[in-house]
């Protein structure tokens, strides 16, 4: 998919600048784009490294596990079909809490083992069970509490109130998650009849 998008973007710009006679601007665009992107990466790098270092400390101190314990009653209600003894629930809550803390690198391995557990509980081989759909939908919605990368970018481009967006981010994340879960549950409910 990205292959087509990338190709299309560049082809369209070349054709378009040929038609409008903006060849020189296009060349400048290529040069600026290339150097800007590296500038962006180097500015982002400091904050990203600092943040992942700090979060690793939190992770090792058991922050994620702690949050997981707080979340598991809620998650138990969302994943009603999962037996209480199953390892799936603890993996799911580790995945969700890592996502909340913005630890993408830690969330994915937990998420994959959660999927493996869910698959063991599912009767069908290559078809997603209702619980799997719910779990994947949670992971396609962003539930990160502190979007640090966006904060860093905003600061870089001269924002005066970097984190003024937080209430809006939380509100729209919650609404999006609610809609996603609602639809997933609606389909799941219908299949049982």
């Amino acid at each position: 998919m990205m292959n087509y998008i990338f190709g299309a973007l560049i082809l369209i710009s070349v054709v378009c600048s040929a038609v409008t006679g903006r060849g020189r601007e296009l060349t400048q665009g290529v040069i600026d784009g290339a150097s800007d992107s590296v500038k962006l990466l180097t500015t982002m790098a400091g904050m990203m490294l600092l943040w992942s270092g700090i979060m690793e400390i939190a992770q090792r101190g058991g922050f994620t596990a702690l949050l997981g314990r707080v979340l598991s009653p809620v998650l138990r209600r969302v994943f009603k079909n999962v037996p209480k003894k199953s390892k799936a629930l603890s993996k799911i809550s580790m995945n969700v809490s890592a996502n909340l803390l913005g630890l993408g690198n830690a969330a994915t391995p937990f998420g994959i083992s959660a999927m493996k557990e869910l698959r063991r509980l599912s009767p069908r081989e290559d078809e997603a069970s209702g619980d799997m759909v719910v779990f994947v939908v949670i992971n396609t919605a962003s539930i990160q509490l502190m979007p640090t990368m966006i904060g860093t970018l905003r600061q870089m481009y001269g924002s005066r109130e970097t984190f003024s967006i937080l209430p809006c981010v939380w509100l729209s994340s919650i609404c999006a998650l609610a809609v996603g879960l609602g639809i997933a549950k609606l389909f799941q409910g219908r299949e049982r009849d």
């Binding site: 994915t108 998420g111 994959i112 999927m115 493996k116 869910l118 698959r119 290559d126 078809e127 997603a128 799997m132 759909v133 779990f135 994947v136 939908v137 992971n139 396609t140 919605a141 962003s142 729209s172 994340s173 609404c175 999006a176 998650l177 609610a178 809609v179 996603g180 879960l181 639809i183 997933a184 389909f187």
Partner: peptide
């Protein structure tokens, strides 16, 4: 990533639910 990791091919209503969430956002 998640469906790929367990070899699931039929994802049913996942995409619809996920994209509705994106649109809501």
């Amino acid at each position: 990533v998640y469906y790929g990791s367990v070899g699931i091919k039929r994802i049913r209503h996942t995409l619809f639910a996920a994209l509705s969430a994106d649109f809501t956002a």
